[in-house]
Every structure is written in C-alpha cells, then in structure tokens.
C-alpha cells in the first residue's frame, strides 16, 4: 500500500487550460503549496520529463510525472479540461484528463507502482467517462479509490 497526498485543493474540474505548457504550470500551482516545493521547481521537473517524450498514455489521458527531492510523500493532482488540448499525444486523441504525480526522489519503486496503478485505472473506459462527467472534486477523488493506495 502506497501512502499518497490528495485532497480537494489538488483537483481542478472544468479547467480551461489551452496548452500543454499551461497544464504543467497549473499542476505546479496546485501542488506547490501542499508540497512546500516551489512552483518553478515542480514545473522545471515536469517540463524536463516531457522533453524526453510525452507522458500521454493515449485515449485522452496524460500522466505527467517527476521525482523531486525534499518531499516526504508522493502528491497526486488531477485536472479535467473542458476542451481537449494537444499534448504531443501518442494517439490521435487530444488530452482532457491529466493525472499528475510528484514522488520523492529516492522512492523509485513507489514511483513505478503509482504509474502502473494509475495507468491501469485510467485504462478503464467507465472511469474515464465518470471523470469527464464529474462536476466537483469529490466526484473526481472517488474514482481514485484503490486497494493499493492510501490517501493521507
């Protein structure tokens, strides 16, 4: 079981970001205060990872991720866009579900477990449908309940 930080303040529903860059900035905004890491540093780490290749996993979903020094737990952030945005997607579908994690630098294993857990959850079409239809953050968070994750 992986302990991970998630609450309402990490979630943005009906978001109107228009570009990949503004999405990464939004994630950095959402996670900066709870994690205590500067917005610029989170952005830099997420941006560096995207330069290696898009974190789009297809079907309108992206999982931007980065490992960051000086945080104690992983943090999860979720953005649902009103209009899909070009995200260097690996398929023809632009992205409207963005589930982002920042993970302590040393927790390589947790990082991979989280990626695997989130991607298999988001591979479920009914989960994607519910996320797209959700109108508030608690509806979003409900979709991320899992036996493998403990939200703290």
């Amino acid at each position: 079981m992986i302990k991970i930080k998630l609450d309402d303040s990490h979630v943005s529903v009906n978001d109107s970001c228009k570009t990949k860059k503004s999405i990464l900035e939004k994630i950095s905004d959402l996670l900066s205060r709870p994690s205590g890491v500067s917005r610029d540093h989170i952005f830099k780490k997420l941006y560096e990872r995207e330069k290696l290749g898009s974190t789009s996993i297809g079907k309108g979903v992206a999982i931007p991720h980065a490992r960051i020094e000086d945080i104690e737990y992983p943090f999860l952030s979720i953005i649902i866009l009103d209009e899909p945005v070009e995200f260097d997607n690996i398929d023809s579908l632009d992205v409207d579900i963005i589930v982002s994690i920042i993970v302590p630098e040393k927790n390589y294993n947790d990082h991979l477990e989280l990626l695997a857990c989130l991607s298999s959850k988001l591979d479920n079409s009914s989960v994607r449908k519910e996320l797209r239809q959700a109108r508030n953050s608690s509806q979003i968070i409900n979709n991320f309940q899992s036996d493998d994750l403990e939200y703290i």
Partner: peptide
C-alpha cells in the same frame, strides 16, 4: 518529436542488478 511512450532506466555501478531488474519489470508492465 518523440512519437512513442518512452521511459528510461539508468544503471550505475553501485546498483544491485536484482533491484534494477525489478524496476525494469515494473517499467515494462507500465
């Protein structure tokens, strides 16, 4: 651009092969 979903696993001298193998298998699964 990079048209694929790609992940990187770097191996250093001090890494234990068995630990890295486990990570590699997790990456592949993902």
């Amino acid at each position: 651009k990079n048209p694929f979903q790609v992940e990187l696993l770097s191996v250093d001298n001090y890494d234990q092969p068995n630990d890295v193998k486990e990570l590699a298998e997790k990456y592949v699964k993902f």
